[in-house]
Nucleic acid binder design. Structure first.
Lengths: 237, 237
DNA sequence: GAAATCATTTTGTGATCACAAAATGACACG
DNA sequence: CGTGTCATTTTGTGATCACAAAATGATTTC
């Protein structure tokens, strides 16, 4: 049979554009592939992730996969069950509340830290990303929407140059993204509303309070949709 | 000479009291050893951590060590340099500010979440730990102090049953603990003041606002001492 | 027909190996 | 005496192997 290309890899694993020959190149490839898969919703909560399976899918040995899975488990993006099995964690109401709380505490703060580093050039790029998002919402491409929404937020956060808060927020996104995807798969993306335009305006005007408010509202609104679903899911079986 | 026992292992690695025969027992041992070493300050910032070195020290093969180092690197407790070398991260003023900010945002929140689960029995245990801390402060045993101070805080936080905020705070402690140790080694522990007694009283009275205030003041005061040192360190070489 | 039992396969884990890159230290040269 | 060069050693990385635990599925038994 012809070797079917996995959904995880969009191109040849070797000879990528990134650091191809540097130390730990293979591990970096695997890490990027799994991270991207989680953030865009290609991993479903509850889905088992096997070392050999992923290794075969990516065309590498089990070794780098083992290290990457440990890495993502440490970030609570994956769950190591007592028998050693690794799976995408299921979302629970308690877990959801905590993620929402943590996001609302950390993300407005980091956005404010990033604001002085954000230029009109960044605002322009963000507007471009946001336009793209609007298109995807209409066409209902949930996977592309999630990827772009992540890009939008982290374009802001990354400008802060943060080495502490940013990884924490990274962990949070990895935790709720898979659940996010299942919800969009059920209710669609048409009803989604965000505060991206308010955020862009706040950046253009260097209005710290307005940026905080926009980010917080964006989180509350976006997670609100998810929250309704998890409750109906928990009660309705 | 007789085989000198490493500072990392207080007893035989195998046949420990914990889950000795379960899946990933060796990895758990290594993980606990390194974590404990970081939290009690037995790892100095800038110190290189080699896979083979740690493996030999703990009497295991390099394999579980590799996975543990990746795990801790994912939590920003260790730093993987571009050449693959792993070391305890150095503290910088910017990094310090972020850790302080994150702690002040997250820890009072988690303490408040934990409060309803904290009983008078917990208050009793906390008071016992705090008495122990006072003893160590006088005797100047920085390593024991750090271990007990961690135990005090996380006895509170763990009661929350948190699966999201707790790991985030865990990561933060792993990040500043090694630096904390170097400061105590320089200025001693006698000048340390905490708000543990206020926290215990707040728990006994189930006073949410008072607990938040105690935790926040404890962080501010404790980190304040560290902050002064990092500044003098940055300017004075 | 449902449940228990047993053989088979899958999977995670720890160990070892081979290789390349990097660090280290000795040595020659200016 | 300082500096650049080269051989040696150390170290991280990826691959493979052997083993035990767990999951899977067929088969037997009541």
């Amino acid at each position: 049979m012809a070797l079917r290309r996995s959904a995880l890899q969009s191109g040849p694993v070797k000879e990528a554009t990134g650091p191809s020959t540097s130390r730990g190149a293979t591990r970096g490839q695997v890490d990027a592939a799994v991270r991207s898969g989680l953030l865009s919703g290609r991993f479903i909560p509850g889905k088992a992730v096997t070392i050999r399976g992923l290794a075969a899918e990516l065309g590498v040995s089990p070794m780098p996969v083992r290290e990457v899975l440990q890495r993502l488990a440490a970030e609570n993006a994956l769950e190591v069950k007592p028998n050693g099995r690794v799976q995408v964690p299921d979302m629970t109401p308690a877990r959801f509340d905590e993620v929402l709380k943590a996001r609302r505490l950390l993300e407005p703060e980091l956005a404010e830290l990033a604001l002085p580093h954000l230029t009109s050039r960044d605002a322009k790029d963000l507007r471009s990303i946001d336009d793209d998002i609007d298109q995807r919402l209409i066409s209902g491409d949930a996977e592309a929407y999630m990827r772009l929404n992540h890009a939008f937020h982290f374009r802001i956060y990354r400008a802060s140059g943060s080495k502490v808060l940013l990884p924490l927020i990274d962990s949070l996104w990895l935790q709720f993204a898979p659940f996010m995807r299942t919800v969009y798969g059920r209710v669609g993306t048409a009803s989604l509303e965000d505060r991206h335009k308010e955020a862009i305006r706040a950046i253009e005007e260097q209005d710290s309070a307005a940026l905080r408010a926009a980010i917080e509202a964006d989180i509350t609104d976006g997670m609100g949709l998810l929250g309704k679903e998890i409750l109906s899911n928990a009660s309705g079986g």
